[in-house]
């Protein structure tokens, strides 16, 4: 037992140095040649910098909306709603989001609203929306910004990211990049 205790303590110390120290340092070292030195991917635009992967709140009618977030896009405290599928209070909230969307987008038929625009993401920081979710907002933005719809359709097509290698996973649009490109149209 005593022998085991000594071995256990010493082995803990050396492996702690090895895994928390050496391994961490190696990965950190490799990160120095990665994009932005491993500090998160950055987009620079108009002299400001944004994190490409961290979703932002867009609820202004002149921008493409981002998804609802349970934590208000708080990037220092991620979180989902964790509402169960049968929770009545939650279903009421979804209904309210649909109604609000229809008020702001009167030319849209309810059946065109895609699910991602009325449900909160897992992280509360989802940087993406589906192409459908962008398309359904064209009429509103065209009217507010006085841009022809065709131009916006093309913008969305340009900003749509294909599945990985064209084969795996869903299509998506980065809302921040889309809105930055939208600002550049004017």
């Amino acid at each position: 037992m005593k022998r085991n205790l000594f071995s256990a303590i010493m082995l803990t110390i050396v492996t702690l140095l090895f895994f928390s120290g050496v391994y961490t340092f190696v990965v950190w070292g490799i990160a120095q040649v990665a994009p932005n030195k491993g500090k998160g991917e950055i987009i620079e635009a108009n002299g400001k910098k944004y994190y490409a992967n961290i979703g932002q709140l867009f609820n202004d009618d002149k921008y493409f909306y981002s998804r609802p977030s349970a934590v208000g896009y708080n990037a220092a405290g991620s979180g989902g709603s964790n509402k169960g599928p049968s929770n009545n209070e939650y279903l009421g909230q979804v209904k309210a989001r649909i109604d609000t969307f229809l008020v702001h987008n009167p030319e849209i038929d309810k059946s065109e609203i895609p699910i991602d625009l009325v449900t909160a993401s897992g992280s509360g920081l989802d940087p993406n929306i589906s192409p459908k979710a962008a398309t359904v907002q064209i009429k509103r933005i065209a009217a507010i910004r006085k841009i022809p719809s065709e131009k916006l359709t093309k913008l969305i097509a340009d900003q749509t990211e294909r599945p990985l290698f064209g084969l795996f996973g869903p299509e998506k649009i980065n809302v921040l990049k889309l809105n930055l490109a939208l600002d550049n149209l004017n």
């Binding site: 709603s81 964790n82 979804v94 059946s111 991602d116 869903p170 998506k172």
Partner: peptide
């Protein structure tokens, strides 16, 4: 397949049950 309680509301739920899910992974993954 999505949440039937939300499908009943008449919106497009073809992307699946997206509450708590991220767009970049989708419902299947």
């Amino acid at each position: 397949h999505g949440n039937p309680a939300i499908t009943q509301m008449g919106i497009d739920t073809s992307a699946g049950a997206m509450e708590g899910k991220e767009i970049r992974f989708g419902a299947a993954a």
